[in-house]
């Protein structure tokens, strides 16, 4: 699988250059959505490696998106506003993590879900001139809204998330994350600082999600509470990671490429009802390929240390 990463990068670099006639813009747009989905799914996966099921990606995505939009609308230079995305999401996740990461299993999942809903309601109810209420705000585009330029910026954002995922995989953290996931008490007795490690994973994941959120907004040009903080975003993140292969770097990226393309393809062919077919495919893969798509060509992934 050593060639797969570089090969995927070359393909990604070439996407806007492929002559696709009248579909050119559409192809680049779909590819941009793939980058966004891959980024959120991969960021979710990093913290899932500690065995904590977070249903809050939408909250951190939304915080990053709103931080960028509000700052940019108030005259903050766009690159600075962009960096506020990950900073705000990371800072909020630190507070949330301190409170919730002592919770186990389902209780943690529900706490993160509740948090995401609360944040959404807060942004709806805040003063209109700050957040735009239920209607949201129009976001200033980065790079003058240049579609191809924004595609490459998205690719840089995703590469950063990939780099973070790989760095974790090849550091001491990999052993701490996997040990916590597979036996928290045993990990503690072996000296792993469990709460601190989980917090690190949570904040890293949230910051990256906030970065993707800020990017997505600079590309989509708007924020709306129901969409930007929507539960659908969180569900897509974990479905994408599981579909592609959890606890891996390639899995969530591969999952995003295939699921997003599949979604677009089905929508063109079926119009209404495409989501039903999409759902069935998702279910079949999760049922019959618990290691996700990457386990198909890398059986070792499931046998090696907690996923390769």
């Amino acid at each position: 699988m050593r060639w797969a990463g570089p090969a995927a990068l070359v393909v990604a670099l070439l996407v806007p250059l492929v002559p696709a006639g009248g579909y050119q813009q559409y192809v680049v747009q779909v590819a941009t959505f793939v980058l966004i989905n891959a980024g959120v799914a991969l960021a979710w996966d990093i913290q899932a490696r500690t065995g904590q099921l977070s249903l809050a990606p939408a909250a951190f995505f939304g915080l990053g998106a709103y931080a960028y939009t509000i700052a940019a609308l108030r005259g903050v230079p766009l690159p600075v506003a962009f960096l506020l995305g990950p900073l705000v999401a990371g800072a909020v996740s630190l507070g949330l993590g301190v409170v919730t990461l002592r919770l186990q299993g389902l209780y943690f999942a529900i706490a993160t879900l509740a948090f995401a809903e609360v944040v959404k309601v807060i942004f709806k109810e805040l003063p209109l001139d700050l957040t735009g209420g239920a209607v949201g705000l129009t976001a200033p585009p980065l790079l003058g809204g240049h579609q191809t330029g924004l595609y490459y910026l998205g690719l840089c954002v995703l590469l950063l998330v990939v780099a973070a995922s790989l760095a974790v995989r090849h550091s001491r953290l990999h052993y701490a994350f996997t040990a916590i996931r597979q036996g928290e008490l045993t990990a503690r007795v072996l000296g792993v600082r469990v709460v601190r490690t989980k917090l690190l994973a949570f904040v890293l994941s949230a910051s990256l999600t906030g970065l993707v959120g800020a990017y997505a907004t600079s590309r989509l040009f708007f924020v709306i509470p129901e969409d930007t903080f929507g539960i659908g975003l969180s569900v897509t993140a974990l479905a994408t990671a599981i579909f592609g292969g959890v606890y891996t770097t390639a899995g969530p990226v591969l999952g995003a490429i295939i699921l997003r393309s599949l979604e677009e393809g089905l929508r063109m062919v079926l119009r209404e009802g495409y989501l039903a077919v999409y759902g069935v495919i998702l279910m079949l893969v999760i049922l019959y390929l618990p290691g996700g798509l990457v386990s198909l060509w890398n059986r070792r992934a499931r046998d090696a240390a907690g996923g390769d």
Binding site: A176, T186, V189, A305
Partner: peptide
Amino acid sequence: GRAFQVVQPFPEMTVRDNLMVGALFGA
């Protein structure tokens, strides 16, 4: 250092990686 009576290996890790956890984060 503690070994449990009811063995609790990290099931999906290799034997080597099980030991790595102790070697990395122990005393």
